[in-house]
Amino acid sequence: MNATPIIFLVVAALTLVAAFLVVTVRNLIHAALWLVATLFGVAVIFVLLDAGFMATVQLVLYIGAIAILIVFAVMLTRRVMQDVGPQRNSNWWLGAIVAAVFFVAISSLLWRTGWPALPGGDVGDTVLALGRSLVNPDQYVIPFEVASVLLIIALIGSIAVALPGKQSE
């Protein structure tokens, strides 16, 4: 008997419950912490897919940096301990339309994708294969470099925004 499908089902269910709670709990900090739980569930699913590198990157980036920044921003912007704001504003229907369109787009994409069966047995060093494919001209070197340039632009842009102007001195 193989335990992997059971683990997958349990983890996927927990991830979905956590994701549902992100948008339904009234306390913003709790929502952010449920988001952390959701991201952790996704990391576990990466582990189940033999993608250890993706799982650890998910932990470092999404939980270690992005989720903490979200929690930090929420703590700074409102008095979350006392103040429980309304969950909807007047634009809720626009959000609902966008979410519905996005859901249809993604599910139709998933429907049409052919799912190739993974090669069984030992797949070798996945980190090595990933690294090779990122610098291989026949594979992903152009998307990789474009993403790097995009990140550098974002970095320089954020420095330019944060830099004190001449008039402030």
């Binding site: 952390v36 250890g52 590198f53 650890t56 990157v57 932990l59 470092v60 939980i63 270690g64 940096a65 989720a67 903490i68 929690v71 060093d125 996945t126 980190v127």
Partner: peptide
């Protein structure tokens, strides 16, 4: 095979 990165990743939870 990602031992070093894993040690950093798990440590990041401590901040949270």
């Amino acid at each position: 095979n990602v031992g070093i990165l894993y040690s950093v990743a798990v440590g990041a939870i401590g901040t949270l």
